[in-house]
Amino acid sequence: MSFRSIFVISALSIMLVSALPFFERSEGNAIASEKQETALTMKADTNHLSGINLFIARLYNEDRVLYATMVTLVMAVLGTFLAFVTDLILKALGLEVSRISHRE
């Protein structure tokens, strides 16, 4: 890949990303964010929550150690699982890896 193409791609990407700040932030989002900026509330608001969101918010409020353990375990298990699935897909696409020779 030539330098010219590298810079063209970089310029295009920067232009594309320039549009990202215009993603509309909802009013509720902005207010919540502002509230968090001033004082980081250590309790999650469980009003109007249901299902998995309610479970997570309750766990966060009631047992921080269990919440931390769950976060760490979930990230490890999900990370391993997703890596495994992606690896299978890449293999199917012919992008299998094996021991490589270290050429500079």
Binding site: M75, G79, T86, D87
Partner: peptide, 19 residues
């Protein structure tokens, strides 16, 4: 947290390549 999760797979793959 995201770094931790994503790096597990990357480390496994680099290990396979002898890196």
């Amino acid at each position: 947290s995201n770094i931790f999760g994503q790096t597990i797979g990357a480390v496994k793959k680099h290990q396979k390549m002898g890196n």
